[in-house]
């Protein structure tokens, strides 16, 4: 299975899907990589929940400013045209449907678009939700970026999530190392898959029914 995408390639694939002029929030962790692969001819405005619009890349070494950080609390920059605002305004943007897109990570996704990405059933650590629930219900579109299965091979896409939910019916599209899947009212529709996995094998790695009216090849440049 060597055509499975690595994380950079999943990020690249998602970046191709983001339309010119979009206002986009990238979740903490893996989704942050998507910013690196936006096609050069597209102007995208990145939002950070802690009060930034027009967020730019990581500053050069020595240029970091503790008062200018992203949602993951890492140093960032602000592009010309960018702005700062309070949390209340930031979440008005999120909840008020002003963001075109949010890309989030996931522990589990259900066939009806339920998302579980803030807590597991392991209660040994204190729980924390951050802005995930607001982003999940508020952004006009929610893309999930995830490995198709867990590290020990368990499906992450299932009929019903077993972990606590972040939001119900919120996910529009799932991008994994193996496939691109739309969440529709009819169920999970496979749009793309990598070449050297069969639809039967993909179904075996997925704990919910997949529909495949027309499947294209999922491919990305070497990254």
């Amino acid at each position: 299975m060597n055509t499975a995408l690595n994380r950079k390639q999943i990020a690249w694939r998602i970046a191709q899907e983001i339309k010119e002029g979009s206002y986009v929030n990238l979740g903490i962790g893996m989704p942050e990589m998507v910013a690196n692969y936006i096609p050069k001819d597209r102007e995208i405005v990145f939002h950070s929940e802690n009060g930034l619009l027009g967020m730019g890349p990581t500053p050069d070494k020595g240029q970091e400013d503790g008062d200018l950080i992203n949602a993951g609390k890492k140093p960032v920059t602000l592009l010309e045209g960018g702005s700062y605002f309070s949390h209340t305004d930031s979440f008005a943007m999120i909840r008020g449907g002003h963001l075109d897109l949010c890309v989030l990570g996931a522990f589990q996704i259900s066939e009806s678009g339920d998302l579980a990405n803030w807590a597991t059933l392991n209660n040994s650590k204190p729980p924390g939700v951050g802005g995930a629930m607001d982003l999940a219900v508020g952004a006009r579109q929610v893309f999930v970026m995830t490995e198709h299965c867990t590290k020990d091979g368990q499906p992450k896409i299932m009929e019903h999530c077993s972990y606590p939910l972040t939001g119900t019916g919120v996910v529009n599209k799932i991008f994994t190392d193996l496939a691109v899947i739309d969440v529709t009212e009819e169920g999970l529709v496979v749009r793309e898959k990598v070449v050297d996995i069969t639809l039967g094998e993909l179904q075996n790695k997925t704990a919910a029914a997949l529909f495949e009216p027309k499947v294209c090849e999922l491919r990305a440049p070497i990254l």
Partner: peptide
């Protein structure tokens, strides 16, 4: 500990 979603925390205040 009381966990409150971030936007809800801000809006409640």
């Amino acid at each position: 500990l009381e966990v409150v979603p971030q936007g809800t925390l801000s809006e409640r205040m």
